[in-house]
Simulated scan of single mutants.
Amino acid sequence: MSQPSAPAVQVRGLTVRRGKRQVLHQISLTVPRGSITGLLGPSGCGKTTLMRSIVGTQIVESGDVQALGLPAGAPALRRRVGYVTQSPSIYSDLSVRENVAYYAALYGRDRDAVETAITAVGLGAHAQQRGDELSGGQKTRVSLACALVAQPELLILDEPTVGLDPVLRVDLWKQFRELAAAGTTLLVSSHVMDEAEHCDRLLLMREGHVLSESTPDELRERTGEQNLERAFLALITMGTAS
């Protein structure tokens, strides 16, 4: 069992290669517990590959990845780490409640946990609808409920707000903040820089490298930019110049 004070995620020298292309280049980082860490960068920069490495589903060339004090992908982490992919992971022929109940059964959670997870993502009124009757945003929320029902210590979310309307995005970030306040660690990826404002810490990626690991305020101070998107662009310029 890991120590509570230890980082939720610790990555050292992570290198991932696909064929002849190196996707991640000697990445090292930490994700503190009970926080929201934003993993931000343009599409194709390696965010999903990094998340898959932390979950333990990615073949890595070299480096060490620890989640909750254990090697990534260790069997003991299956009930402690939740992962929501970019594409909704639900069964289209099952209702919202049946989808969440299925995952609850896998994790040994009861009926109350199912209803709590459905309510948390705002789908109580749609609990009887089949997966193929839902909108894209609703499917994303069902996937999130399926992860939440396990009550994970570490929740990894790969671009969970893509394609959602602004009101729903605000609601989801409010839910993420409540989870972090209750002790859950969240690692949330996005290519939309304005979502960085919702995060306690930021990991900024570009072309398989981590450019910065800091708080939003530290990034502003380092670059002299108050707008986080301009701060990210300034960081790229600084890196190119050096």
Rank of each mutant, 00 (worst) to 15 (best):
M1C: 02
A6H: 15
V9M: 09
V9S: 08
G13E: 15
L14C: 07
L14K: 09
R18P: 05
G19Q: 09
Q22K: 04
Q22V: 11
V23Q: 09
V23K: 04
H25F: 15
L29V: 10
V31D: 13
T37Y: 14
L39W: 15
P42N: 11
K47E: 14
T49M: 08
T57E: 13
I59F: 13
E61S: 06
E61C: 01
S62K: 05
G63C: 11
L68G: 04
L70A: 12
A72H: 07
A74Y: 14
R78T: 06
T85Y: 05
Y91W: 07
V96H: 01
Y102N: 01
A104G: 09
A105Q: 07
V114E: 02
A117Q: 09
H126A: 13
Q128I: 06
D132R: 04
D132H: 12
E133P: 03
Q138A: 10
K139A: 09
K139D: 04
S143G: 12
L144N: 04
L144V: 07
A145D: 01
C146N: 05
C146A: 01
V149C: 02
A150M: 11
E153H: 07
L155G: 03
I156E: 08
L164H: 02
R169C: 12
L172A: 02
K174V: 00
F176T: 00
G183P: 03
L186C: 06
H191K: 00
R201H: 14
R201A: 12
L203D: 14
L204A: 01
H209K: 08
V210C: 10
L211W: 10
S212D: 11
T215R: 13
G224H: 11
E225S: 07
N227V: 04
F232V: 07
A234R: 15
T240W: 15
A241K: 14
